[in-house]
Amino acid sequence: MPLLQLEQLSKWFEIKRTIFSKPLYLRAVDGVNLSLEEGEAISIVGESGCGKTTLGKTILRLYEPTGGKIIFEGRDITFERAEALLWYKRRAQIVQQDPFGSLPPFFTVYRILEEPLLIHQIGNAKLRREMIYKALETVRLTPVEEFAPKYPHMLSGGQRQRVAIARAMILRPKLIVADEPVSMLDASVRIEILKLMRDLQKRFSMSFIYITHDLATTRYFSERISIMYAGQIIEIGPSNNIINEPLHPYTQALLKAIPDPDANNRKIFREVPPGEPPNLISPPPGCRFHPRCPYTMDICRIESPPEIYLQKDHMVRCWLYAKK
């Protein structure tokens, strides 16, 4: 049984223009199927506005889902009331993008890490102290006695993100959603933080959803990669497959856009997917990528492509691979 299973999960945001007009819906997440095994790390990659952050937050029930199902450890939590979700909030945690805003400025590091323990009524003061110091050690904020009484504004961006990771880990969750955890950090500490998260993920065999727009780093930090476009997952498969033989034209375009560190190739023009990401209020009919796709066929404009499994674990939604 997978740890987490999403079935046709949707999150539509209602947009009211006036009181009397019919509300419009922004389909940020539109029918996502995904399953995640225990201890597995999966990357969700896509360009800005494709709904990947919304998907992450909906999984954590920070947003109310509009439709579909979220099944966690075999329990359907899609429409569970917030009060009845405390057990889930202990098992699923978030690491946010902005380490400068994600820590309450008026709490010390110690208090920040104690908050989740207090809410879930874990241990007594002494036990909590041990847990907090241990958590600080695991994220390598040592000496812990020195960091515990500090306020967030006394820490660097990388240190803050370590505190945020420690906070997410302290409840020993089964699932962590890391929402672009390094995009606001200095390039010099990015790899370090990513490595730390990967280490911890393996050490505590947690499942990891790594949301990013940086396809280049995903191979090293996740077993599987899923590509999201306009609120839908259009390709999903093992990391090596996706990187080495991308199937969907959008994935191919994304891969071509990755900068090449080889100086000899610096003059080669990098093809970027032409056009703009679609308007999610009225997405294009048929395949949502068809206005930008170089291989558009007639059927692409009419009918949305089904999930096509070329191998057991490599799915693509593109008419190019449909059995005629």
């Binding site: 920070l62 405390l86 699923a92 945690q93 902005d98 805003g101 994600s102 908050e115 879930h120």
Partner: peptide
């Protein structure tokens, strides 16, 4: 809208706790 409020929601803080402590 501060991210730390969202984080608090993620680790299960109640509305009352968020109002008075955050």
């Amino acid at each position: 809208e501060e991210p730390y409020i969202e984080a608090a929601l993620a680790y299960g803080a109640s509305s009352r706790r968020i109002i008075f402590l955050y």
